[in-house]
């Protein structure tokens, strides 16, 4: 048996993220060619290729590789999840929703292309995500691809992303939002898509049902963690550091973890979620689990 190594010393997270980020960006660029009508495709590309850390696609690829699959197998689903994430941001930023002017340090989609194009570009990205999975996934049994389609569909509709946004809108400005409601919003707005990224990767990589469930639980924890950290950063960082309007949650009277339980307790909660997430990975080969462990730590300790 090999001696146990300190994972952090052998695994270079930054180079892993930048390498995967480059592959994902190349694949996204290829997935949406600029064609007629140009303005819609430009608008789709504007938001999709605006940078961002590609956390969701990398999670998808890392989960696939963890269970023995390779990057190329997971790439179409990884791109799809980024398309979905982007479309939900485009629609959430609209004036009738969160009314955001700035996203990832750039004017939001509707600010550049107008509201009608923003709605259509979002719809088109949603559709493309499914088309891309169905057409571009290679070397995987159709049974598994069908499961992936179902997983993604469930995560983004009225039981997932949309439900989160609805409840978020409902409670905006309300003074009686409790932890339960806040958790509901975060789980649905953020965690389910991270969960489906990981689960899709696992399914495509050939995971057993038991492995899928472990990874599902891992993803659920880091999904909530992601949002708790977001809430903390919104209170502690400036707009410039975040690339979006900081303090917006406080200004619009949105409920956040720091507001409900204080900054200190929010940080403790984040640590607890990170521990719980990493416990799910105990059963996997530690060397292969290194990317996911580092991703969890990254989500917990990121500064923007």
């Amino acid at each position: 048996e090999k001696p146990k190594k300190d994972i952090d010393s052998t695994f270079n997270f930054n180079s892993y993220m930048s390498q995967k980020g480059i592959s994902v960006n190349q694949a996204l660029d290829k997935a949406i060619a600029l064609k007629e009508p140009f303005k819609i495709h430009e608008s789709m590309r504007y938001s999709l290729l605006a940078g961002g850390k590609r956390v969701r696609p990398v999670l998808c690829i890392a989960a696939c590789e963890l269970v023995g699959g390779d990057e190329a197998t997971a790439m179409p689903a990884a791109c799809a999840v980024e398309m979905i994430h982007t479309m939900s941001l485009i629609h959430d930023d609209l004036p009738c929703m969160d009314n955001d002017d700035l996203r990832r340090g750039k004017p939001t989609n509707h600010k550049v292309y107008g509201e009608s194009v923003a709605v259509l570009a979002g719809d088109a990205l949603l559709a493309l995500a499914f088309e891309h999975i169905a057409n571009a996934t290679l070397g995987v049994s159709p049974t598994r691809i069908v499961r992936v389609v179902s997983e993604l569909a469930k995560a983004i509709g009225s039981e997932g992303l949309v439900a989160g946004q609805i409840v978020d809108i409902d409670f905006t400005g309300a003074s009686d939002v409790g932890l339960d409601q806040l958790e509901y919003i975060h789980i649905h707005k953020t965690a389910v898509l991270l969960e489906s990224s990981v689960v899709m990767g696992a399914i495509l990589g050939g995971a057993t049902d038991q492995e899928v469930e472990k990874l599902r639980k891992f993803a659920r924890c880091i999904g909530l963690l992601f949002q708790v950290v977001d809430d903390i950063l919104d209170v502690t960082k400036s707009s410039e550091e975040l690339g979006k309007t900081a303090g917006k949650d406080l200004m619009s009277d949105k409920t956040t973890y720091p507001k409900l339980i204080g900054l200190e307790k929010s940080r403790e909660f984040a640590e607890k979620l990170n521990r719980e997430a990493q416990e799910q990975l105990c059963h996997f080969d530690p060397a292969k689990a290194a990317p996911l462990i580092s991703l969890a730590n990254y989500i917990a300790h990121r500064q923007n």
Binding site: P37, L120, A121, D123, L128, A129, F130, N135, P142, V149
Partner: peptide, 25 residues
Amino acid sequence: ETRLLRVVSEIARAVGSTGMAAGQF
């Protein structure tokens, strides 16, 4: 299941950026 995936892909293409969304635009 291969046919089901073709159905999914067909519908996605029809509503997408070169289909109905393009028409509306």
